[in-house]
Structure formats: structure tokens, C-alpha cells
Write a protein that binds this DNA or RNA. Structure first.
Lengths: 225, 225
DNA sequence: ATAAACCTTACAATTGCTGTAAGTGGTAGT
DNA sequence: ACTACCACTTACAGCAATTGTAAGGTTTAT
């Protein structure tokens, strides 16, 4: 069952939205308080987020922007006002669709379904950070107008770096993710593969760099974020 | 430069739309007559089609539906009326977005850009027939909720079958597309690879069949079209 | 019934991925 | 400045996956 997260401060509207989606066969939920909304949303690993932009505290647009940087799910923006500039702001921030309240439940469902379908094409196998995306089935890495097909080992390294972005990933985490053991078979093998991966990235001219933090591990740095 | 095709019968509105997109840096064009619109549109290989649904003759919805079956580009529907049922029909037929006329140029551009971006993620490497899609870089074939990563030879065969769908593809065409020569190295090699490809398709449980037409060639048959 | 077209399985050569080895370069702390 | 440690790079060889060849079986049309 596909999970939809509703971020809406008006309790009645929130319950109504949740109910609408549940009737349509989705697993819908929404946080009641708005401290650490971003963490709450990402922790649920939703297939779609429906976001009211008139939130208390941090603006809904800010939330949309920061979710989009890490998110691998589509975002549907809800707003009370119907101004062109609102719509342009929303789409500019990477929202995947835009609707004005109040709106007919069937319209909302139709829009949501379209977004879910579009993102399903890639079968949830797409990881994203900014404009960078990785297909974890084929290890095809796409950034802006370039792409690169990684071999399995390099792909697994990239996968972990993207999943943990923007945090540092320790060597032992990389060992367990790629070779399934923290007891490094050979300390060197990770560096060999890092070397190959970096060479591929730079030869493709991608604005993606893997930086080493001495004694700590590796971090991904993506251009244009 | 990205190409946008406008399908609109009102000549003034058509010219205005074309001009709007050209100013925004796109290669915009639109057929003046509506005989064989479908062929005219597909022949241009656009990156996006903007479609007025109130067309003379064949309804715009019909056109949308038939384009979507073969199209590998997004479709933005324009309509004069703003009814929920119109919108639901449009989205149900596979349209990628929906706008009502008249609309502000910047809104139109913003929507168009969003669609182009979304489809660009796959870098024009996506071929589609109905719910079937093939990434021609990785030869990842996706259908409904299943996927399959093909090896190069089988991928090239699939690519040609999808491109030519729903036509029959002759053996000599397959030979030149896959091995670069009509003079078949060995008549058998095509059949061996067909066999492997079919085995993979059926083992994955995809509703995709390659049918042989004795003496003519092969055709793709996709379930759910 | 027969021939042509089509299909399938098994095998071997090639290709390319992966880890090992060995040596170089750079950084931090004494 | 010296030293120990960490990080990087290149070359090589074993192994696995893919591809074409070979050979024999099955279906279809006349």
C-alpha cells in the first residue's frame, strides 16, 4: 500500500484529507505538531507528500525546498491563495504539482495518482539529491545533462553516499554496505574503488565530488545545490 | 534546443503560443491543418506537446490518448472549460498536465518547464509504449510493477521492436540494427537471441510478447493497451 | 508428407569486472 | 624536519557474464 503524508496545520482539514486518501485506498497520515516536521516526514518514507504552504513557523515553501533536496518522493503543494506568483514559487522550488484549496476530493486524488504513477515508472529505484539521481537497479547515475553507468561495486558506494547525504560516511559503513563485513578484507580495496569511481565522475564531467575527511570517512558534494 | 509542438486550431492563439515559447528559448511550431495530426506531431519528435482539446474533427482527447500510447514525450492539455470532469478525463487519458485558457504566459512556461525537466531526468533515453518503457542506456525494461535488465543484444532487439510498434519488424531490419549488416552472419543468431529475450520476458512475468509473423518478421504485443 | 521457417539447448571464446599487490604522495604530530 | 599513518594510483590476473556457433527439435503451409 502506498503511503501519503499530509502536512497541514488546520486539524479539521487535515483529518478530512487523511480520510479522503484512506477511502481511496492509501495509507495516509499526517503529523499533529510541527516541530521537526522535516524529520517526521522523511522518517515515514512516504510515496507522496501533500504540503500546505501556509504553515506556522517555517514557511511551507522552505519545507518544500529542503525536502526536495533530499526527497525521493513527489510533493503536491496546497495553498489557499490562487496567485500566479505562488504557483511559480512552488514550481520553482521543485514542487511536482500545485492545487488551490478548497478543491474537490476527486481532483485531489486524480492529481495524487498521476504523481504516484509518474514516480512509480522508475519503481522506487530512484535515489535523488538535488539534480543528481541514481537508479539502484542499473546504477545509472544522472546529473544535469550527463549520465554514467556505474559497475556494481562503484554503484553501491555511490548509493550509500547519496542515501547518507549530506553526512559523512565512515569507511566501516562502506565496507558493510558494499562487502557485507566491517572487518575489511583489505583496507586498500575501498580506496581502489573510490579511485575508479572518482575517475569515472571526473571523466564524465559531472559536478559531483567525493571528498575524503581524514580519519572520518567520505562525503558527497553535489554542484548546484 | 528543445522542441515544443502546439496543437491549436485558433490561428491567433496558436501564433501567440508559438511566440510565447519562442521568446522563452524553445523551438516551437504547430501544424496549420488537422489532417493526420497524429503523424505530423510524432514526425516532429517533440520534447513536449501542448494540446488544445477543443479541436475540429477528432476530439483532442482522442488525440491525446493515441499519442500517449506511442509517445515518449509529455503532453500538456489546454481547455477553455474548467470543469472537474474535463480535468479527470484528461489526466485519466495520460495527460501530464492540465491548464485552462486563457492563462498567463509565465504560468504556461513554468508548467512546460516542469514537464520538460521531469522527462529530461531520463535524458531522452526513455522509449515508451503504453505502460512499457525502456531505458536505452541501461536496457532496463519496466512494465507495470516489474522490471528486467536486458543485456546489450537483447536490449537492441527490444529497442527496435518498441520504436516500430505496432508495426512488424523484418529480420533484415533487426540484423542491421543489432549487428550492423543485413547480410546475416548466421541466420540462427537472431533466433537464439529472440529465444533468450522471450525467456527473460516470461520469467519476469511481464505482459509483453514477441510474436513471429511467418515470413515477415516480429511484432511486439503489450498487454493492457 | 515434405520442405521451409522457426525454436531451443549446450558449449566455448571473448570481454570486462573485481580484488590483490606494490609503490607513491600527502598530512599531522612530535 | 622526521616519522608514522592515512590516502591515492596503476598494473595485473582470476573469474563471471555475455555472445556467437553448432546441432538438433518443432511448427506451419502446401
Amino acid at each position: 500500500m502506498q503511503r501519503i503524508v499530509i502536512v497541514e496545520d488546520d486539524i479539521y482539514l487535515r483529518e478530512e484529507l487523511i480520510h479522503t486518501f484512506q477511502k481511496a485506498g492509501y495509507d495516509a497520515a499526517g503529523p499533529a505538531s510541527f516541530e521537526n516536521v522535516e524529520e517526521k516526514v522523511t522518517a515515514l518514507c512516504p510515496d507522496l507528500a501533500v504540503l500546505d504552504v501556509n504553515l506556522p513557523g517555517k514557511s511551507g515553501y522552505e519545507l518544500c525546498k529542503s525536502l526536495k533536496i533530499k526527497a525521493s518522493f513527489p510533493i503536491l503543494i496546497l495553498t489557499a491563495r490562487d496567485t500566479l506568483s505562488d504557483e511559480l514559487t512552488a514550481l520553482g522550488l521543485g514542487a511536482d504539482d500545485f492545487l488551490t484549496k478548497p478543491c474537490h476530493p476527486r481532483r485531489l486524488i486524480a492529481r495524487a495518482e498521476r504523481l504516484l504513477q509518474t514516480y512509480d515508472k522508475g519503481l522506487r529505484a530512484m535515489l535523488r539529491v538535488g539534480q543528481l539521481s541514481l537508479d539502484t537497479d542499473t546504477y545509472k547515475l544522472v546529473c544535469a545533462d550527463r549520465f554514467l553507468i556505474l559497475v556494481e561495486t562503484e554503484g553501491k558506494i555511490m548509493k550509500l553516499l547519496i542515501e547518507r547525504y549530506p553526512d559523512i560516511v565512515s569507511k566501516s559503513d562502506l565496507f558493510s554496505a558494499v562487502w557485507g563485513t566491517e572487518e575489511f578484507v583489505d583496507e586498500n580495496i575501498l580506496q581502489v574503488n573510490m579511485s575508479r569511481l572518482r575517475k569515472n565522475l571526473s571523466e564524465t564531467g559531472m559536478e559531483v565530488v567525493i571528498r575524503n575527511i581524514r580519519g572520518k570517512g567520505y562525503v558527497l558534494e553535489v554542484g548546484g545545490i
